[in-house]
Computed example of a mutant assay.
Amino acid sequence: MIIRTATDADWPSIWAIIEPIMREGETFSLPRDGDEATARAYFASPEKVNFVAEDDGEILGASYVRANQQGGGSHIANCGYMTAPAARGRGVARLLCAHSIDYCRTQGFKGIQFNFVVSTNKPAVHLWQSHGFEIVGTLPGAFLHPVHGYVDSYVMFRAL
């Protein structure tokens, strides 16, 4: 599996990953009935650099990196990751996270902050912690989960 910079030609494959995740509504704060334009504005907006995880020509996951804030906060990155439902459990998110840590270092970022990690997304919380991220804040009842109702969301951070 390789990680490479995404191109415009990759968007249909990225959308194919994002759409079922949006419809599930369990891990990202995107509208469950959102359309492709909404997804693209969120995941591939101009301030973000996108990457894809590719295996034998098939895109299995995607990520973005951006400055978390402007000005005095621009030295902290923010990243997001999505894995194709059929590719879950194959190490795609682990590889994308490791790549983003290395990429952020080369770009001069001093840390990475995840602004909104849904607490019921236990595999992601565990994975991010295994990469050195810590829960630095809890937003009580910040996410309306379609199964569990209002659940907490975490702010997670890792210095670089």
Rank of each mutant, 00 (worst) to 15 (best):
E54L: 11
E58A: 10
L60V: 00
N78F: 01
T83D: 07
A62K: 04
G57N: 04
N78I: 03
A67K: 14
E47I: 11
A87M: 13
A53F: 15
N68Y: 08
A39H: 10
V65T: 12
G61F: 06
G72P: 13
A37V: 09
R66K: 15
V52Y: 06
A67V: 02
L60M: 08
H75T: 00
F43D: 12
H75L: 13
E54V: 04
A67N: 06
I59K: 01
K48H: 03
S74E: 13
G57T: 03
Y64A: 02
A44F: 11
A39F: 12
A53C: 03
A84Y: 12
E58H: 06
A77Y: 06
F43C: 09
H75I: 09
I59Q: 07
P85Q: 06
T38A: 10
K48L: 09
S63W: 04
N68D: 08
G61T: 06
N68I: 01
P85I: 03
D56V: 07
C79Q: 02
P85H: 06
R66S: 14
R40Q: 12
N78S: 11
A37S: 13
G72E: 05
G73Q: 07
F43M: 12
G71Y: 08
E58W: 01
S63R: 06
F43E: 08
Q70N: 10
G57M: 03
E47D: 15
A67S: 15
A37L: 15
E47R: 15
T83F: 11
V52W: 10
N78A: 15
Y42N: 08
R40C: 10
T38Y: 06
G57I: 05
A62L: 07
Q70F: 14
N78R: 07
A87C: 13
V52N: 05
P46M: 13
S63Y: 08
E58F: 01
D56W: 03
A77V: 00
E47H: 13
G80M: 00
G80Q: 06
F51E: 00
S45D: 11
